[in-house]
Structures are given as C-alpha cells and as structure tokens.
C-alpha cells in the first residue's frame, strides 16, 4: 500500500506561520515508521495541537485515510493565521480536519475527555525568556520559555485528560527539554514511552517520543506509593534500563 504524505508544494504558507522544518519532518517520519501500528489501532478521533502549516495533520490524514475508514481529525492552533493556512493545506490535498483557533485544547476538555485515540504535537520547544512565550504570531511557534518546557508542561496534563484508554501521544522534544524527565512525569501518570525517531544536527538533537497508557505502570505505581515515596527514583531507573538511548540524554 502506498503511504502518501503531504506534498511541500501543496502546503500553504503565510509570513506569520511556521513552515515545515526538520522537526515537522521528524514527526511525520515517526508517524510513517509507526503507520502499521496506527492502522491496526483503528483510531476514531485523531488530533493535532499546534498545527502550524497543516503539514503534519494533512500527512496523518493521508496516511490513515478518512471517514471511509471511520477516522475523524481535529487540529488546533493558538495562531489564527495557522488554522487558516492549515485549512488551505488540507483542502489542497483533498482531506478534511475540523479546525479550532484556541489555546492548546481550551473549550474541548470537558466534552472530549477520553475520546482522542491519537494525538500529535510538535510544540514550541526552544528555550527562551519566559515573557516570549505565547506572544502573537510567529514567535509563539518556537518560544518555549525556561528549558523550552513552558508550553510542553501545559500540554501534557491536557493530553492525559483527552487521550482515550487506548490513546497514543506522539511528541517532538529537544534535548534541552530534558526528555527523560518528561517521560518520568508521564510515567507517574501511568504512561509508558518509546523513542520512535531520533535526529541529531550540529545544534540540536530531536526526539519523537510515543506515549501510551500502560495498565501495569499504574498498578505498580499505586503499590509503590503505598509502600514508600521514592517513586521518581525507581521510575527513573526503570526508564533508563528500558531505553538504552536514554543514557545519551
């Protein structure tokens, strides 16, 4: 089966909208690498937070198919230009996603809790002064505050709330974001993690991490909490033993 992704020449643009870059390509490559699993996963609702040009959500829709297979797509961005550009990109490829201009998933959290089967995020992850976060326009594409974590740390609990029992989250992180600590925090919420794609350039090292709810972790965690309070240290050891790459961080 051919696996189509968005074509750069059909991706719409605007001076205030993030163009597909290495991080966007890494995320789409991660989705492609996991495509067989994604198809077997039979997601009903897929969502992107921070869709920018629409390159990623369009690629996902092309990869997994539309409603003939019973999949619906939703994407948000805080930048009004981005959602407009995303709608043009989707249309140029003949696919559809509902779009909302909002902060992360504000307005969706009550009714969409536990309904999202696949969430993809390429967040603003560049370490910047805190006051650059959430500014209007293109700056909000990358400005991530201290360690690049300000927006990421807001997204994680929201993702946890929106993801269905079988939900998967794919997120781009930079080494400066301290991805092992992110995995650890997600582990405390009951998620297992795996690195799907790792890319290193001279300046930065990108990881696309996949998270999923792991029933074993939650049980284990509850018991541990009852016994003593050293969960983080134990979880960290577990994580490092499970993912040899983690030692590179």
């Amino acid at each position: 089966m051919s696996s189509r992704i968005a074509q750069i020449r059909l991706v719409s643009s605007h001076p205030e909208v993030y163009e597909p870059c290495d991080d966007s390509f890494a995320l789409v490559d991660a989705l492609l690498a996991d495509r067989t699993n994604l198809l077997e996963h039979h997601p009903k609702l897929c969502m992107e937070v921070g869709c920018g040009s629409g390159y990623v959500i369009t690629s996902l829709a092309l990869m997994l198919g539309q409603n003939a297979l019973g999949v619906q797509y939703l994407a948000t961005d805080i930048n009004p230009h981005s959602v407009r550009v995303t709608s043009e990109t989707l249309e140029a490829h003949g696919v559809h996603a509902d779009l909302i201009c909002t902060d992360i998933a504000s307005g969706l959290e009550k009714r969409m809790a536990r309904l999202v089967d696949v969430m993809v995020v390429n967040p603003p992850y560049v370490p910047t002064p805190e006051d650059e976060v959430g500014r209007q326009g293109i700056a909000s594409s990358w400005a991530g505050g201290e360690n690049g974590r300000t927006v990421i740390d807001k997204i994680l609990p929201i993702a946890d709330n929106l993801l269905s029992d079988k939900g998967w989250l794919y997120m781009v992180t930079l080494t400066a974001n301290n991805p092992s600590q992110i995995c650890l925090q997600m582990r405390e919420r009951g998620y297992a993690a795996r690195i799907v794609v790792q890319r290193s350039t001279e300046e930065e090292s990108l990881h696309v991490i996949k998270f999923w709810r792991d029933a074993d972790i939650q049980v284990e965690e509850k018991e541990t909490v009852l016994m003593n309070k050293t969960v983080p240290a134990r979880a960290m050891e577990y994580l490092l033993s499970q993912y040899p790459q983690a030692s590179l961080w």
Binding site: D98, I100, T102, S106, G107, L108, R111, L115
Partner: peptide
C-alpha cells in the same frame, strides 16, 4: 466547523459553569 466538533466544544470563559452547548 461540523456539528461533531460543536458537540465537543464548551465555552471556556473563566467562571462559566454551564458552557455547553
């Protein structure tokens, strides 16, 4: 916006308790 999305969306203003539909 389709009604699938409308059905998922609530008013997100601070202090609002019944923001749906």
């Amino acid at each position: 916006m389709r009604l699938l999305t409308h059905n998922m969306l609530s008013s997100n203003i601070k202090g609002v308790t019944s923001g749906f539909p």
